[in-house]
Design a binder for these strands. Sequence first.
DNA 1: TTTTATTGATTGAACGTTCAATAAAAATAT
DNA 2: ATATTTTTATTGAACGTTCAATCAATAAAA
Lengths: 199, 199
Amino acid sequence: MPKVGMEPIRRRQLIQATMEAIDEAGLADATVIRIARRAGVSAGIISHYFGGKDGLLEATMRQILHDLGEAVATRRAALGRAEPRAHLEAIIDGNFDRSQVSGPVAKTWLAFWASSMHKPTLQRLQSVNDRRLYSNLCHQFRRCLPRDEARRAAQGLAAMIDGLWLRGALAPEGLDVAQARRLAYDYLDQQLAREPALA
Amino acid sequence: MPKVGMEPIRRRQLIQATMEAIDEAGLADATVIRIARRAGVSAGIISHYFGGKDGLLEATMRQILHDLGEAVATRRAALGRAEPRAHLEAIIDGNFDRSQVSGPVAKTWLAFWASSMHKPTLQRLQSVNDRRLYSNLCHQFRRCLPRDEARRAAQGLAAMIDGLWLRGALAPEGLDVAQARRLAYDYLDQQLAREPALA
DNA sequence: TTTTATTGATTGAACGTTCAATAAAAATAT
DNA sequence: ATATTTTTATTGAACGTTCAATCAATAAAA
């Protein structure tokens, strides 16, 4: 059924199938045959479009990071120069979106997280994303807290977000998004309450 | 050099070598040959003492969980009926001990964490440990907070601990234990400040 | 007819496991 | 003490399996 312009279609299908395969069997057992079968194509097509299995895995991680960045950016775009609290809440909401989207994404994310410790390519992607989260948080906290307190608050909130999400990815029943948001908001409130005001 | 009573020695050597191999190359590339070479023995000995590679991996995770439990228990044993805050601080300190011990342990822990999503045996071990942490935290918070608030504080602190440790395991420079403790203590203080007192 | 997309059998490398062979220590007999 | 036997610990080559990658063959669309 070869039609012209299949590349973007196949790429999307294979990336989606990769997440499903990792969700189903784990990264170690997500073989090219398993992924290809899920996408309804043959194994050889992976090398054709991604240069090999590693290329597909990297593309999949890029997709997840892209979606995450977009989930945050979309929510913040509507805010303009709103209060810091609104921006910080948007960052929290955006970060818990990735779990809301699906269980496969969460498990794939954690699998890549572990894998990135020993694969320089993935590590770079992960590091860039991490720094972006910290930088965004820090910048907003700076609008109402002194420098050192802002840094501390940003690190604490980043850890809280990652921790909640990590525990959610591992729990058989998945992440309780409403509760996770409540705990993150709670932490946020306490950090913002440190300084009475700063007109 | 076969001497009698080698079993406990070899088991310890191989478990240690497993952590080092995972630290060095990741779980995926921690082959039996690599592990055996690190321990200074041949590959076959792994099947002899652990029944196979899976048995060795399970034993390694058990060792890590055991050490963690002991690190917490040791610190709490000296406290007796001390204030809840002292017990909670001991739990925090004990949990950050596992990173203090070495980088290999942290990376192995994260590798198992990801792997446990698809290996029932590891999942059970991980789940038991998780519930113990939550249960311990919840019990201490109950001594000075109402039920719902205690649960929330326990879940928040557990997420904070895991998040700090997770980010530490991934950071190239490792976990800054002093700073992690500061952030966890900080969260603890805020939770305990919710209720003025409860004589 | 030419181009584009896809297949799937094949290849070679790497893995975990097995097991007959070996060697050192311990036990026993001399 | 010394020699012999038994036990225990260990090796490493061989085996079967599994995987990712390759590429000649194929088929549909342009």
